[in-house]
Design a binder for these strands. Structure first.
Lengths: 179, 179
DNA sequence: GGTTCTGGTTAACGGTGTTAGCCAGGAACT
DNA sequence: AGTTCCTGGCTAACACCGTTAACCAGAACC
């Protein structure tokens, strides 16, 4: 694996520590726990000190979004390597990662992407498997992505009936967009 | 002690006024403007007085969710009546309503539905056109719903590239789930 | 040795949802 | 009529939020 610009690599150690604390808080205690004071507590510092490392809370969240995109891209690339050309496998990886990291997924997904603050090409890399490897045209790719995102977000929000067979819905979706 | 609120029908006039103010705030100024103090201001009252009519902010939001479900159901039913059997027409109505009421749509969509506080059958009514009229099986119905929701939510979050041909993506989706 | 930069601190501001406690007015019962 | 009780306002306050201002200890640099 060549040297990729890993998210947060150019951050100072302290800044990385802040992002790490933010991620732990988000993943272990949920979105409401992601506050500047809680982050500061976790690294043994007072909240205003965080502003010596990030201009505002949004900047911390942007780092979390970058982590999400990067890890999602890695998960999709792995799935593709394991089962080339299978939309179903790609969907499974997508769902698997999102459900394993619900806080991160929702944080990185529900507001506009600050594209300029993100490592160049990261967004494309996350989306690439759908297009490059599967050969979906641009509209089908978008539709398939919307389907996957919709499935995940409805599942995370608890909107499907209890006991609904989501595996089957995913399979139907994969079939619908294949060929 | 009345049973459960039926989309505001059994709310007191004051409570309906509160919900109305909440809706206006949400739709005209966005989700950040939906605060108890702003609602109270709008009807010429102080914030704590709202708690004489609703137990908490969530209860007000639940009424807004009920409104969303009801109006969405009406929009879908109208589309179904105008173009029976057309998934594309249904999708168009779905997208049209959501994009016309983005604040309401997101509010009613991104957290778990408090099903017990909602009028009985409302959720089913909103989902019915997909199943009853189109004859989609349960899994295909769910997949189509996820697609529509994903398309809307990504559009509202500004996640599609500028100038992307979303009409075409919707068309592809409609075709994919039709038979 | 003096200066400057770095990264901490405390105090505070205006905002949030929410609770406690008080009180005026009307309804209802005796 | 007198008393009580309920309704729906009010002010004050609490704990929390993101954020800013002002200050200061220590290390680094000339």
């Amino acid at each position: 694996m060549p040297t990729e610009p890993v998210a947060g690599l150019q951050l100072s150690p302290r800044a990385r520590q802040i992002v790490g604390a933010a991620r732990e808080l988000l993943e272990k205690e949920g979105e409401d726990a992601l506050t500047m004071r809680r982050i500061a507590d976790r690294i043994g510092v007072k909240a205003p000190s965080l502003y010596k490392h990030f201009p505002d809370k949004t900047a911390v969240e942007v780092e979390l979004m970058a982590i999400l995109l990067e890890e999602m891209a890695a998960a999709l690339e792995a799935a593709e390597a394991a089962a080339p050309g299978s939309l179903e496998a790609l969907f499974e990886a997508y769902r698997g990662y999102a459900v394993a990291h619900p806080g991160l997924y929702r944080l990185g997904t529900q507001k506009p992407l600050p594209r300029e603050s993100l490592p160049a090409g990261l967004e494309e890399r996350a989306a690439a498997p759908l297009f490059r490897e599967l050969g979906l045209d641009e509209h089908t790719g978008r539709a398939a992505w919307a389907f996957a995102h919709g499935m995940v977000v409805l599942e995370l929000a608890g909107r499907f009936p209890d006991g609904a067979d989501l595996d089957e819905a995913w399979r139907v979706g994969a079939a619908a967009f294949t060929r």
